[in-house]
Amino acid sequence: MPARFVTYSTDQGSGYGLYTEQGIIDLSARHGARWPTLRQVIEADALQRLADEAAGLQPDIAPGTFRFEIPIPSPEKLICVGVNFPDRNEEYKDGQVAPSNPSLFIRFPRSFTGHGQPLIRPPESPQLDYEGEIVIVIGKGGRRIPESEALDHIAALTLCNEGTIRDWVRHAKFNVTQGKNFDRTGSIGPWLVPFIDEEQLADIQLTTRVNGEVRQQDRTSRMIFSFRKIINYISTFTTLVPGDVIVTGTPTGAGARFDPPIWLKPGDVVEVEAEGIGTLRNTIEDEA
Protein backbone atom coordinates (compact mmCIF):
# COMPACT_ATOMS: atom_id res chain seq x y z
CA MET A 1 0.00 0.00 0.00
CA PRO A 2 1.56 3.33 -1.03
CA ALA A 3 1.74 6.20 1.45
CA ARG A 4 -1.42 8.32 1.45
CA PHE A 5 -0.91 11.95 2.50
CA VAL A 6 -4.02 13.90 3.49
CA THR A 7 -4.90 17.42 4.46
CA TYR A 8 -7.60 17.29 7.13
CA SER A 9 -9.67 19.58 9.32
CA THR A 10 -11.24 19.10 12.74
CA ASP A 11 -13.13 21.39 15.09
CA GLN A 12 -9.72 22.35 16.48
CA GLY A 13 -8.14 23.35 13.16
CA SER A 14 -6.47 21.86 10.11
CA GLY A 15 -3.30 19.92 9.40
CA TYR A 16 -1.81 17.14 7.34
CA GLY A 17 -0.82 13.57 7.93
CA LEU A 18 -0.66 9.99 6.72
CA TYR A 19 -4.01 8.25 6.28
CA THR A 20 -4.52 4.69 7.54
CA GLU A 21 -7.68 2.66 7.98
CA GLN A 22 -7.28 3.23 11.74
CA GLY A 23 -7.03 7.03 11.42
CA ILE A 24 -4.49 9.73 10.64
CA ILE A 25 -0.87 9.87 11.79
CA ASP A 26 -0.62 13.60 12.43
CA LEU A 27 2.51 14.84 10.64
CA SER A 28 1.69 18.53 11.03
CA ALA A 29 1.90 18.15 14.82
CA ARG A 30 5.43 16.83 14.32
CA HIS A 31 6.65 18.91 11.38
CA GLY A 32 4.21 21.81 10.98
CA ALA A 33 6.57 24.45 12.36
CA ARG A 34 9.01 23.67 9.55
CA TRP A 35 6.51 22.78 6.83
CA PRO A 36 3.07 24.31 7.51
CA THR A 37 1.26 22.44 4.71
CA LEU A 38 1.87 19.63 2.23
CA ARG A 39 2.86 22.28 -0.30
CA GLN A 40 5.97 23.06 1.75
CA VAL A 41 6.64 19.35 2.32
CA ILE A 42 6.60 18.85 -1.45
CA GLU A 43 8.83 21.88 -2.01
CA ALA A 44 11.36 20.32 0.38
CA ASP A 45 11.09 16.98 -1.48
CA ALA A 46 10.25 15.42 1.89
CA LEU A 47 7.20 13.23 1.18
CA GLN A 48 9.08 9.96 1.22
CA ARG A 49 11.18 11.02 4.19
CA LEU A 50 8.08 11.72 6.27
CA ALA A 51 6.49 8.45 5.18
CA ASP A 52 9.59 6.54 6.24
CA GLU A 53 9.79 8.34 9.59
CA ALA A 54 6.12 7.59 10.31
CA ALA A 55 6.53 3.85 9.79
CA GLY A 56 5.32 2.07 12.91
CA LEU A 57 3.61 5.11 14.45
CA GLN A 58 0.05 4.78 15.70
CA PRO A 59 -2.71 7.13 14.42
CA ASP A 60 -3.36 10.30 16.42
CA ILE A 61 -6.74 11.20 14.89
CA ALA A 62 -9.52 8.63 14.93
CA PRO A 63 -11.84 7.89 11.99
CA GLY A 64 -15.00 9.97 12.04
CA THR A 65 -13.39 12.88 13.88
CA PHE A 66 -11.92 14.69 10.86
CA ARG A 67 -12.88 15.97 7.42
CA PHE A 68 -10.85 15.51 4.25
CA GLU A 69 -9.79 18.78 2.60
CA ILE A 70 -8.19 19.26 -0.81
CA PRO A 71 -4.63 17.95 -0.41
CA ILE A 72 -2.80 21.15 -1.48
CA PRO A 73 -4.73 23.92 0.29
CA SER A 74 -3.31 26.93 -1.59
CA PRO A 75 -1.60 25.97 -4.86
CA GLU A 76 -0.09 28.83 -6.82
CA LYS A 77 -1.64 27.39 -9.97
CA LEU A 78 -4.52 25.01 -10.60
CA ILE A 79 -4.56 24.26 -14.33
CA CYS A 80 -7.06 21.95 -16.06
CA VAL A 81 -6.72 20.20 -19.42
CA GLY A 82 -9.81 20.13 -21.60
CA VAL A 83 -10.45 17.53 -24.31
CA ASN A 84 -7.85 14.79 -23.76
CA PHE A 85 -9.40 11.44 -24.72
CA PRO A 86 -10.24 10.37 -28.30
CA ASP A 87 -13.94 9.67 -27.69
CA ARG A 88 -14.23 12.96 -25.82
CA ASN A 89 -12.91 14.84 -28.84
CA GLU A 90 -15.48 13.13 -31.08
CA GLU A 91 -18.29 14.38 -28.82
CA TYR A 92 -17.89 17.87 -30.26
CA LYS A 93 -18.89 16.72 -33.77
CA ASP A 94 -17.08 19.66 -35.38
CA GLY A 95 -15.22 17.60 -37.95
CA GLN A 96 -11.87 18.41 -36.39
CA VAL A 97 -9.21 15.82 -35.78
CA ALA A 98 -7.60 15.73 -32.36
CA PRO A 99 -6.06 19.14 -31.61
CA SER A 100 -2.29 19.57 -31.84
CA ASN A 101 -2.08 21.32 -28.47
CA PRO A 102 -4.07 20.85 -25.24
CA SER A 103 -6.95 23.13 -24.31
CA LEU A 104 -6.37 24.68 -20.89
CA PHE A 105 -8.31 26.65 -18.32
CA ILE A 106 -7.81 27.79 -14.75
CA ARG A 107 -9.78 26.91 -11.64
CA PHE A 108 -9.66 28.52 -8.20
CA PRO A 109 -9.04 26.43 -5.07
CA ARG A 110 -12.36 27.59 -3.60
CA SER A 111 -14.19 25.81 -6.43
CA PHE A 112 -13.12 22.46 -4.94
CA THR A 113 -13.94 20.57 -1.78
CA GLY A 114 -12.49 17.40 -0.22
CA HIS A 115 -13.30 13.72 -0.32
CA GLY A 116 -16.48 12.78 1.51
CA GLN A 117 -17.89 16.29 1.43
CA PRO A 118 -20.84 17.33 -0.73
CA LEU A 119 -20.51 19.05 -4.08
CA ILE A 120 -22.75 22.10 -4.00
CA ARG A 121 -25.35 22.74 -6.71
CA PRO A 122 -25.89 26.51 -6.96
CA PRO A 123 -29.30 28.15 -7.31
CA GLU A 124 -28.30 29.74 -10.62
CA SER A 125 -28.45 26.45 -12.55
CA PRO A 126 -29.45 22.78 -12.16
CA GLN A 127 -26.83 21.70 -14.71
CA LEU A 128 -24.17 20.37 -12.32
CA ASP A 129 -22.13 17.73 -14.14
CA TYR A 130 -19.26 15.37 -13.22
CA GLU A 131 -15.85 14.81 -14.84
CA GLY A 132 -13.51 12.22 -13.34
CA GLU A 133 -9.82 12.98 -13.84
CA ILE A 134 -6.31 12.14 -12.71
CA VAL A 135 -4.30 14.92 -11.08
CA ILE A 136 -0.55 15.40 -11.08
CA VAL A 137 1.09 17.60 -8.45
CA ILE A 138 4.34 19.29 -9.36
CA GLY A 139 7.30 18.62 -7.09
CA LYS A 140 10.27 20.14 -8.87
CA GLY A 141 9.54 23.44 -10.57
CA GLY A 142 10.83 24.58 -13.91
CA ARG A 143 10.33 26.40 -17.19
CA ARG A 144 10.41 24.88 -20.68
CA ILE A 145 10.72 21.38 -19.23
CA PRO A 146 11.64 18.81 -21.93
CA GLU A 147 9.25 15.90 -22.33
CA SER A 148 12.14 13.54 -21.63
CA GLU A 149 12.51 15.05 -18.15
CA ALA A 150 8.87 15.90 -17.42
CA LEU A 151 8.02 13.01 -15.12
CA ASP A 152 10.95 13.92 -12.87
CA HIS A 153 8.94 17.02 -11.96
CA ILE A 154 5.94 15.12 -10.53
CA ALA A 155 5.74 14.78 -6.74
CA ALA A 156 2.41 13.03 -6.30
CA LEU A 157 -0.86 11.85 -7.82
CA THR A 158 -4.46 12.34 -6.76
CA LEU A 159 -7.97 12.46 -8.27
CA CYS A 160 -10.46 15.12 -9.26
CA ASN A 161 -14.17 15.35 -9.92
CA GLU A 162 -13.97 18.42 -12.11
CA GLY A 163 -17.59 19.42 -11.54
CA THR A 164 -19.02 21.82 -14.10
CA ILE A 165 -22.09 24.04 -14.42
CA ARG A 166 -22.74 23.28 -18.07
CA ASP A 167 -24.86 26.21 -19.21
CA TRP A 168 -22.44 28.66 -17.59
CA VAL A 169 -19.52 27.40 -19.69
CA ARG A 170 -21.42 28.74 -22.71
CA HIS A 171 -22.05 32.25 -21.42
CA ALA A 172 -19.32 33.69 -23.63
CA LYS A 173 -17.61 32.83 -26.88
CA PHE A 174 -14.05 31.95 -25.90
CA ASN A 175 -13.96 30.82 -22.29
CA VAL A 176 -15.35 28.35 -19.78
CA THR A 177 -14.15 30.07 -16.62
CA GLN A 178 -17.58 30.89 -15.19
CA GLY A 179 -19.00 27.37 -15.37
CA LYS A 180 -15.84 25.86 -13.93
CA ASN A 181 -15.50 28.00 -10.81
CA PHE A 182 -18.71 27.98 -8.78
CA ASP A 183 -17.74 27.42 -5.15
CA ARG A 184 -17.42 23.77 -4.11
CA THR A 185 -18.73 22.32 -7.37
CA GLY A 186 -15.71 20.03 -7.76
CA SER A 187 -13.53 17.91 -5.51
CA ILE A 188 -9.89 16.82 -5.22
CA GLY A 189 -8.52 13.94 -3.18
CA PRO A 190 -8.83 11.85 -1.14
CA TRP A 191 -5.05 11.95 -0.69
CA LEU A 192 -1.70 12.36 -2.40
CA VAL A 193 0.13 9.21 -3.47
CA PRO A 194 3.85 9.87 -3.95
CA PHE A 195 4.96 9.48 -7.56
CA ILE A 196 7.73 6.91 -7.88
CA ASP A 197 7.85 5.78 -11.51
CA GLU A 198 6.03 5.93 -14.83
CA GLU A 199 4.18 2.65 -14.31
CA GLN A 200 1.89 4.50 -11.89
CA LEU A 201 0.53 6.54 -14.83
CA ALA A 202 1.36 4.80 -18.09
CA ASP A 203 -1.73 2.60 -18.49
CA ILE A 204 -4.13 2.81 -15.56
CA GLN A 205 -7.91 2.65 -15.66
CA LEU A 206 -9.93 5.72 -14.72
CA THR A 207 -13.61 5.20 -13.82
CA THR A 208 -16.45 7.49 -12.75
CA ARG A 209 -19.60 6.07 -11.16
CA VAL A 210 -22.85 7.84 -10.30
CA ASN A 211 -24.97 5.97 -7.75
CA GLY A 212 -22.95 2.85 -8.55
CA GLU A 213 -23.48 3.06 -12.33
CA VAL A 214 -20.34 3.34 -14.46
CA ARG A 215 -20.60 6.53 -16.52
CA GLN A 216 -16.99 7.11 -17.58
CA GLN A 217 -14.17 4.62 -18.10
CA ASP A 218 -10.95 4.77 -20.07
CA ARG A 219 -7.22 4.20 -19.75
CA THR A 220 -4.43 6.74 -19.54
CA SER A 221 -2.58 5.06 -22.41
CA ARG A 222 -5.31 6.46 -24.70
CA MET A 223 -4.88 10.08 -23.68
CA ILE A 224 -4.37 12.46 -26.61
CA PHE A 225 -1.76 14.42 -24.66
CA SER A 226 0.54 12.43 -22.42
CA PHE A 227 1.51 13.54 -18.94
CA ARG A 228 4.94 14.35 -20.36
CA LYS A 229 3.44 16.54 -23.09
CA ILE A 230 1.14 18.35 -20.66
CA ILE A 231 4.03 19.33 -18.37
CA ASN A 232 6.20 20.33 -21.31
CA TYR A 233 3.49 22.45 -22.91
CA ILE A 234 2.35 24.25 -19.75
CA SER A 235 5.91 24.98 -18.64
CA THR A 236 6.60 26.64 -21.99
CA PHE A 237 4.50 29.67 -21.09
CA THR A 238 4.54 29.65 -17.28
CA THR A 239 7.03 28.59 -14.64
CA LEU A 240 5.75 25.57 -12.76
CA VAL A 241 6.44 25.59 -9.02
CA PRO A 242 6.17 22.94 -6.29
CA GLY A 243 2.57 22.30 -5.31
CA ASP A 244 1.07 23.35 -8.65
CA VAL A 245 -1.93 21.16 -9.49
CA ILE A 246 -2.62 19.93 -13.04
CA VAL A 247 -5.96 18.21 -13.77
CA THR A 248 -5.33 16.12 -16.86
CA GLY A 249 -8.64 15.51 -18.66
CA THR A 250 -11.78 13.39 -18.51
CA PRO A 251 -13.08 10.47 -20.63
CA THR A 252 -16.36 10.54 -22.51
CA GLY A 253 -19.63 9.91 -20.64
CA ALA A 254 -20.40 13.09 -18.70
CA GLY A 255 -24.06 13.77 -17.97
CA ALA A 256 -24.29 16.44 -20.66
CA ARG A 257 -23.76 13.77 -23.33
CA PHE A 258 -26.91 11.80 -22.52
CA ASP A 259 -30.16 12.46 -24.42
CA PRO A 260 -31.73 14.03 -22.49
CA PRO A 261 -28.83 15.18 -20.27
CA ILE A 262 -28.60 13.70 -16.79
CA TRP A 263 -27.55 16.35 -14.27
CA LEU A 264 -26.40 15.64 -10.74
CA LYS A 265 -29.05 16.18 -8.07
CA PRO A 266 -29.14 16.19 -4.27
CA GLY A 267 -28.64 12.71 -2.87
CA ASP A 268 -26.52 11.45 -5.76
CA VAL A 269 -23.17 9.81 -4.99
CA VAL A 270 -20.26 10.28 -7.40
CA GLU A 271 -17.12 8.16 -7.22
CA VAL A 272 -13.93 8.70 -9.24
CA GLU A 273 -11.52 5.77 -9.08
CA ALA A 274 -8.09 5.11 -10.58
CA GLU A 275 -5.84 2.11 -10.20
CA GLY A 276 -3.11 2.63 -7.66
CA ILE A 277 -4.48 5.98 -6.48
CA GLY A 278 -7.81 5.31 -4.78
CA THR A 279 -11.43 6.44 -4.89
CA LEU A 280 -12.72 10.00 -4.53
CA ARG A 281 -16.32 10.01 -3.26
CA ASN A 282 -18.77 12.90 -2.92
CA THR A 283 -22.48 13.42 -2.48
CA ILE A 284 -24.53 16.31 -3.90
CA GLU A 285 -26.35 19.03 -1.99
CA ASP A 286 -28.13 22.22 -2.94
CA GLU A 287 -26.56 25.47 -1.77
CA ALA A 288 -28.17 26.58 1.45
Rank of each mutant, 00 (worst) to 15 (best):
V247W: 02
D52A: 15
Y130A: 06
I42S: 08
I120N: 03
S148I: 10
K229A: 09
V135E: 05
P194W: 01
D286N: 15
S74A: 15
G189C: 05
V214R: 00
E91T: 06
R215W: 13
E271P: 07
Q12P: 02
P266R: 11
L18A: 07
A98V: 04
T208S: 07
A44C: 09
D183I: 11
T158R: 05
K229G: 01
Q178E: 12
L57F: 08
E149Y: 12
P99T: 00
L240W: 04
R166N: 10
L151C: 03
E91L: 11
P266W: 08
I234H: 00
V214M: 04
K229P: 00
D268M: 10
P2T: 13
K93W: 02
V247C: 07
R34S: 13
G141D: 09
L104H: 03
S235N: 07
I120T: 12
P190M: 06
L18H: 08
L151M: 06
A55D: 10
D60L: 00
P109S: 09
E90T: 11
G163I: 04
T7S: 14
A62H: 08
L50V: 06
G23I: 09
Q205I: 09
G32T: 02
L159F: 07
V241M: 13
Q58M: 12
F237V: 15
T177W: 14
Y16E: 05
D152E: 15
R219T: 13
V247G: 03
L119H: 02
P261V: 09
P36W: 05
G253R: 01
A46S: 15
S221V: 13
W191P: 00
A288L: 11
P36N: 07
K173Q: 14
E133C: 01
H31G: 01
G267E: 08
A274M: 06
T7W: 08
P109G: 04
P194H: 03
W35H: 12
R281K: 15
T208R: 00
P109D: 01
G141N: 10
N282W: 11
L128T: 03
E285M: 13
V135M: 07
G189W: 02
Q58R: 12
P2S: 11
P63F: 00
Q216C: 02
I70Y: 05
R144Y: 04
I262H: 11
R30H: 08
N181Y: 06
E43G: 12
D218I: 00
N181L: 10
W35F: 14
S111C: 13
I262T: 14
G82N: 04
P146H: 08
L27H: 01
Q200E: 07
I145T: 10
F112M: 14
R215I: 05
R67F: 09
V210H: 03
G253K: 00
G212H: 02
W168F: 14
N232H: 15
A3D: 12
S187I: 01
D167Y: 06
V41R: 11
A156F: 12
N232A: 14
D203G: 03
E149T: 14
N101W: 12
T185V: 10
F227S: 01
I165Y: 05
C160N: 08
T164H: 06
Q12A: 15
K173M: 08
V270S: 09
P190E: 05
L78K: 07
Y130S: 04
K140A: 11
A150R: 06
L78Y: 12
P266C: 08
Q48W: 13
L104Q: 04
N161Q: 09
V247Q: 03
T208E: 05
I61E: 11
Y92F: 14
Q216G: 00
N89F: 04
